[in-house]
Write a protein that binds this DNA or RNA. Sequence first.
DNA 1: TTACCTGCAAAGGGTTTGCACTTTG
DNA 2: CAAAGTGCAAACCCTTTGCAGGTAA
Lengths: 140, 140
Amino acid sequence: MKAADLRMTESRQMVLQIIKESHTHLNAEEIWQRAHQRGMKTSLATIYRAVKLLEQAGLISEHSLGQDQSHYEAAGKNTHYHFTCIGCGNVLEFSTSQVQSVIEKLIKDQHIQIRNVHLLMEGTCRQCLEEKKYTDKAGK
Amino acid sequence: MKAADLRMTESRQMVLQIIKESHTHLNAEEIWQRAHQRGMKTSLATIYRAVKLLEQAGLISEHSLGQDQSHYEAAGKNTHYHFTCIGCGNVLEFSTSQVQSVIEKLIKDQHIQIRNVHLLMEGTCRQCLEEKKYTDKAGK
DNA sequence: TTACCTGCAAAGGGTTTGCACTTTG
DNA sequence: CAAAGTGCAAACCCTTTGCAGGTAA
């Protein structure tokens, strides 16, 4: 399904706008909360249906950040990746150009098409290290 | 928790062995099936408890491969990453040295500790492309 | 003996779905 | 008007947990 095929109903526009405006990754419930704050009475089910469609249309992308729920971000533009702290759960975003050549090589060697790239690092953030909550490789 | 702190009970050894012997990623149910094939009557709950502990001990690692369940692999040794086809669900493994420098830069810049790296590409595999099941960027 | 493991079955929690109704094009 | 979207609540499914009994050191 392409973006053009998507019926842009009021709730889908709202979901897309919320995701675009938030510069961090949101989960379904957070999107739902923000929609309500803006006066839109939509159901969680609709949010889930919307994000699935927006994702299929290539407008947003879904990420597993090592947490229980999926998170969503606006697609394209400034590609970035994630680091999740196993101590406090905070997520750090970072960019790198190194991934691009991996993609290109893969496409060339395997004759595949790549639509989405997730690079997730898990570890311990500076603050948690300082608090010595998690000091060795094996964690807690 | 470190590996040395882990009580290596029969079922945990079995789980670890099954994961090591399988050179692909297994989910909890698959591990459970293989354990039963080998004559061990263990419960799924025990499998889940075992993989969590083995993971904390650094002996195996858990991956989200864009599917509903988590998959597990033996940790360390030959690091590799994954490509999941959104058409047929097949998973392709690949290696690259490019990621290492990303890790090093991150550690240096952010003063963090990194324990696990997941690089997942999603797209369409060669065969699905040929069958024209999924031809454009947005998928089906 | 004490601490830890296990099986069972029930509970959890994020996500999906059936259905009746409403909205969009 | 036909096709698609929505709300609600129930269903789903993977995973976790409480508890009673078993096992290891």
